[in-house]
Structures are given as C-alpha cells and as structure tokens.
Amino acid sequence: MTDTGYVQILDLVCGGILLTAVLMLWRRELAAIVRLLVVQGVLLALLAALMGVRESSTELFVVAAGVLVLKAIVLPAVLRRVLRDSGEAREAEPLVNVTASLLAAALLTLLAYGLSRPLVALAPSPTTRALPVGLAVVLLGFFVLVTRRRALSQVVGFLLLDNGITATAFLATAGVPLVVELGVSLDVLLVVLVMQVLAARMRLSFGRTDLDGLRELRD
C-alpha cells in the first residue's frame, strides 16, 4: 500500500468514525443509533487492521478481529436486547435540543483539535494528525451522557466515549499492550452487561428507563 493511499484510507476511516458519532447525536431513533454504533465498530476494526498493515504486526490483526467481534457484534446485540425488552423506540426530548447539540459538537471538536496540538507535536505523522478525531469522539460521548435521558442512550454515550479512547489508542500508540487491551475490553463488556441488567431492573422498579426517575437519593 502506498503512503498516499494509506493516508487517504486512514482519513476516510477517521472521518467515518467522527461522522457516526455526530449522527448519533442527531438521530433520536434508538434503533438507528445502535446501527450507527455497529458502523462505528466496523470502522474501528478497520482502523486497527490499517495500523496492522502499516506496522505489519499480526498482533494488531488479532486485535482488529477482537474489536470487530466486541464492538460491531456483541455490544450492539446486547443493546438491541435492551431495546427490545424496553419497548421504547425513541429517545425522549433530550436535555439540550438537537440544534444546540450539533453546535456544541462543533465546539467540542474544535476543542479536541486545540487539545491535540501538543500530542501531534510529539511525533508528527499522518496517523497522529488524526488524533483530534479520537478526542472529539470522547468529548461527544461525554456530551451524550450528560444530555440524553434514556438509560440506553447513556450506555451508547459510554460506548461512544470508549470508542473514542480506542481510536485514540490506535492512532497514538498503535494499540496498548495486549494484556491491557484484553483487560479493557473485558471491563467494557462487563460494564455494558451490568448496565443491561440494571436497565432491566430499572424497568421492573420504575416501569420505564427514563433516568429522570432516578431522583430518590438526594440531599
């Protein structure tokens, strides 16, 4: 693969990751959001594979396969189950409306660019130049967490955050050591499973998964 080709594909993939993140902010249909998450998972796996080609490391191919399984298949499946059980198809009115959310997303992306300047400066290369994408996805994920009302949306926000970090890890360091990567993936999976159980219990106790109901513990 030529350098230009690599850079173009890399930019395409990264652009795709950022685009899916923004779309998730835009869409209100939960099923659509889960589909976007699948797309993002595939793109992440692609990114890992791309790094693998670049570094010619088989380890990264294994990681890419793992990412594909976890982020594009297992986790969305869990989310779909939550979605099916809950019977709530749409996100309720978010705390910040979509227009403002998109504006905020723009600002957050700008911040991510500003922030990654010192990171890029350490080792300028096409790969690290794409770092802002990872950071932007992290911030967008956090934004989703703060503004979306449904339990499922918050899980999505968390996954978005995690995808952003994964992207950052691939772009900056071509992946963390395998043992760490394994631990992290296991943790993420378990957290999502725990949340799934909790969402189910929440529905049992509260009748819905609107997080505004969780206001009993307070000072």
Partner: peptide
C-alpha cells in the same frame, strides 16, 4: 441542591470539570 439526585447533573459536573481543566491546560 448540589446533590439533587439527577445523574445528568452529576455527569455534567464531571464534564464541565473536564472541559475547564482541558481548556486551562490548552
């Protein structure tokens, strides 16, 4: 009132904290 029970608000504390620290650092 700071602990009014809203998980969104709790996360917002963290988000605002993160953003302000990052902006200051930037």
């Amino acid at each position: 009132r700071l602990a009014n029970g809203s998980v969104h608000r709790y996360l917002a504390y963290g988000f605002v904290g993160l953003l302000s620290v990052l902006i200051v650092v930037g």
